[in-house]
Computed example of a mutant assay.
Amino acid sequence: MEWLVFVPLAAIALSTAVLVIVLRNPVYCALSLVGTFFALSGVYLLLQAQFIAVVQVIVYAGAIMVLFLFVVMLLDLGHESPAWLQRDRPRLLLGIGVIVLLLIELAIPIGSGTSQGLQGSHTPELVAAVGNTQLVGRLLFTDFLIPFEITSVILLIAIIGAMVLARR
């Protein structure tokens, strides 16, 4: 039964992600990215991660995409030719190298069978008993407090930088 929902969601996510890369108009690219975000939200719902699905829609498809569209409209990018058409070989080779390294990095844990993720002692029974959102909140403010605080400081620096740039 889950496959009947997963396969169309995965097809939508892949096709809209390809459209983000292929389309030349930045506004259409941003709208395709919104479609990818909604499809990923559906996949998160299949994984019983309701909190992440709602955050995906509200934060990414809502707030972040509004910010992207605002920047695109502010810069008035118009129609630019893609980087690979400008014959920029060093950047193209660097991008291909980074992609190969990332694929190797992904293949190592999968091939060795050691990718257990962050689940640890959080069994599905515990998640069902406590609740997914409550468990995420507890983990954020106990085990992952330092990365959470570092992220908030980085976001504060980004806001201050945007204000300084906008002031000029």
Rank of each mutant, 00 (worst) to 15 (best):
L156W: 07
V100G: 06
L40C: 05
V72H: 02
V66M: 05
I150Q: 05
G120V: 09
P90W: 05
S41K: 00
G62V: 07
Q134R: 15
V127K: 01
S81R: 04
P124Q: 08
L47H: 08
R87G: 04
G137D: 11
I159A: 09
A49G: 09
S112C: 13
A53K: 02
R91W: 15
S112W: 10
L140S: 13
Q116V: 14
T151W: 08
V20M: 06
C29S: 11
A13P: 00
L67P: 14
I99K: 01
G95C: 12
F37D: 12
L47K: 09
A10I: 04
G120I: 09
G131N: 08
D88T: 08
D76I: 15
I150G: 02
A63C: 08
W3C: 15
G97L: 03
A11Y: 11
G161T: 07
V164L: 15
A83E: 10
L4Q: 14
S152K: 08
S32C: 11
I104M: 13
T36V: 01
V130F: 09
M65R: 06
S81C: 03
A10G: 02
V22H: 05
T123D: 10
V72F: 10
G78P: 01
T133D: 15
Q86Y: 06
G111W: 08
I96A: 03
I160A: 13
T151M: 12
L4I: 10
I150C: 04
D143V: 03
I99E: 05
N25R: 07
L139Y: 00
A128M: 07
T36I: 01
N25Y: 01
V59S: 12
H122V: 12
A11I: 06
V34D: 02
I160F: 11
E80A: 12
M73R: 11
T36M: 01
F148H: 04
V34K: 01
L33Y: 02
S121I: 13
L118D: 15
S15I: 05
N132P: 15
A63R: 02
A129M: 07
M163G: 04
I12C: 07
F148C: 04
N25D: 15
I64P: 09
M65C: 09
H122F: 12
A107Q: 13
T123Y: 05
M65K: 03
L74E: 14
L126A: 12
L103W: 05
R91C: 10
L92I: 10
V130S: 11
L126C: 12
L145K: 01
F68E: 03
V5H: 02
P90Q: 02
V54K: 00
S41C: 05
N132F: 07
L106Q: 13
R24C: 02
L92Q: 13
I58S: 12
G113P: 04
S115F: 13
G62R: 06
I108E: 13
G97F: 00
Y60G: 04
L46T: 03
L145H: 01
T151S: 12
L140E: 09
I159M: 10
W84Y: 14
P147V: 02
